[in-house]
Design a protein around this nucleic acid. Structure first.
Lengths: 207, 207
DNA sequence: GGCTTTCGCTACGAGTCGTAGCGTAATGCC
DNA sequence: GGCATTACGCTACGACTCGTAGCGAAAGCC
């Protein structure tokens, strides 16, 4: 899942293979260091020591701190799934609570925003984040939307381009609100907050 | 506006006063370095050189890179004002466009998210961001809400505690959506997007 | 003129960076 | 089994940044 980034075709690759245990140990050590030190004080030498590998091994697999942290944080989002709770409102509440639970982890809080900040000046890093983190979230919006349309809770868009814009908008609204609540306002996105949010999202302010 | 952070009462302070020009030059140099280098590669020595001051002068006024960047970025939000456009929808669109314009600046993009990430592990820094950046934005939500209630566009809350929660929710939804659109999705929050966003915020998804 | 604080400058030890070199370990191919 | 190939651990290195200390000079208040 990680090595694929570096060797697209692991087909004819002679020689000693890379240790998968080392990959897992490095990513776990990175998350541990993120919790204890935060992004700015995290050093690759320290991560190597924690993981029990040589510093040079780290540099052979990742270009730098940013790429390593992206991969380490991306694994946290593997657990994201869209529950089928019977209604659009319940589905939204379920997935938002999952998302909020991940963002409540200190390794996600300090790591995610830092790499997003770095990505403003690094196109390749932005693409890496998109592929391994953002797209996985956006897929949930697409599925939830399709489900709600099948239930008749949402009108079916005929124009596919307009539909894509709507999905992007909803995604930014949902993810943005949870991130802002958790990281900027520094308040928990608990069940009560999620209920209020879902109500506004579905019915608007003027109700 | 900046020195106040360090000396609450500038009353009886004899000796040579601190140069206000130096403050302005340092903050401007910080923004310039943010544009050219980004947050991670920005060094205080480089900022001092750009500003034409000694490195020691920087350390006398700011505790570190984080505090400096917060002050430098905070000045960008001075221009934020709530225009009276006649309707709640128009007011929201106006202020969101202003906010989006600031976030489109490279010095804001690379600086703001980085210090927010650092603030996850630094309570004092979080408070500094809240006081100099976030509260200035939240005030606009309060004003816009009061105006809309005076116009009869929004129902008047009787419970003040519930009203405060609603304001916090709206603030996270508005600011979060714009930030996510601009920094994570890396797409411009242009007029078309703002119109769609305002429509969903006011009327909900199911319309 | 005296007192106080700031300023610019230089220098310093400590820490991190990313890389190179070397000998060893683990695989695929013949 | 032998050989080529790649990964690994280890050490060492120059370059850079950090934050601080010490100094003499400058700029204000009494």
């Amino acid at each position: 899942m990680v090595g694929d980034m570096h060797s697209r075709s692991p087909a004819v690759r002679s020689g000693r293979p890379r240790s998968a245990e080392a990959d897992a140990a490095i990513l776990a050590a990175t998350r541990e260091a993120l919790v204890e030190l935060g992004w700015s004080k995290l050093t690759l030498g320290d991560v190597a020591t924690r993981a029990g590998v040589a510093k040079t091994t780290l540099y052979r697999r990742w270009a730098g701190k940013n790429e390593l942290v992206v991969d380490a944080v991306a694994e946290l989002f593997d657990a994201l799934e869209l529950p089928d709770c019977g209604s659009l409102a319940a589905d939204i509440e379920g997935v938002v609570l999952q998302f909020a639970a991940i963002l409540a982890l200190p390794e996600a809080r300090s790591g995610l925003m830092a790499v997003v900040a770095e990505a403003t000046r690094d196109e390749a890093l932005r693409e890496r984040i998109r592929a391994s983190v953002v797209d996985r979230q956006k897929r949930l919006v697409l599925e939830g939307r399709a489900r709600a349309q099948a239930r008749g809770e949402l009108p079916a868009e005929e124009d596919p381009e307009s539909a894509a814009r709507t999905v992007d908008l909803i995604f930014d609204m949902v993810a943005g609100a949870v991130v802002h609540r958790t990281l900027v306002s520094a308040e928990p996105a608990d069940e009560e907050w999620v209920r209020s949010f879902t109500r506004v999202l579905l019915q608007g302010l003027g109700s």
